[in-house]
Write a protein that binds this DNA or RNA. Sequence first.
DNA 1: CGTGTAAGGAATTCTGACACG
DNA 2: CGTGTAAGGAATTCTGACACG
Lengths: 112, 112
Amino acid sequence: MSSESTPYKDKKVISIGIVRELTGLSLRQIRYYGERKLIFPDRNEKGTRRYSFSDIEKLIEIANKREEGVQTNEIRREMNKETKPVEKRMLKEMLRGQFNAHFRNNSNNKPF
Amino acid sequence: MSSESTPYKDKKVISIGIVRELTGLSLRQIRYYGERKLIFPDRNEKGTRRYSFSDIEKLIEIANKREEGVQTNEIRREMNKETKPVEKRMLKEMLRGQFNAHFRNNSNNKPF
DNA sequence: CGTGTAAGGAATTCTGACACG
DNA sequence: CGTGTAAGGAATTCTGACACG
């Protein structure tokens, strides 16, 4: 009955104007970083961009890097390098070819 | 260096159109429930309302109550009754006059 | 009481482009 | 390459009001 699975942090519900307020970046910059594939806002039916809190945190990191003179290409590479720990583990598992084995063990749906 | 204190859930960053998408309520209803003091959106400089994820959860509860025929006045009373558990405990403690005693016990910062 | 709607205005967002460099 | 800006249009949001009940 209770909702425990609500990843507010990743829900794309924030419009670009508020992102500007929260990050201090210009609309132009925010859109451009999306164009350069550093962030991936959703679009609603009408085509307006929707950002998440995660996107905002990323944008702040991006802004810091940019101030240091780092180019968007370089920033994208850095961000891809530090993949999320969970994804990393899954990737390793799949590469080791243990993904199917894992499923074979778990698809046993008999009581005993 | 890391930011651990980010209550995304209570940040007022969502515009009314998105709230409508997320709750299924009409703009009229969402504004009206604010007028009746069931929720308390912020306003930005220009006067547009900003809601939080908490507000959205409240709105869903409100919608359920309304479907049962409960009036907004009654809903407001019910919501005030169920104060947050933490606040409740603190209130109890303060009323018992043990608030200072509690602090006296804990302000002992000697190793032993 | 709770909600719909039409009304007029103000603010938001979008895209493609020119500019500078 | 990264960002500013003016341009025109489309979509959003606001308030106060009338309506029904």
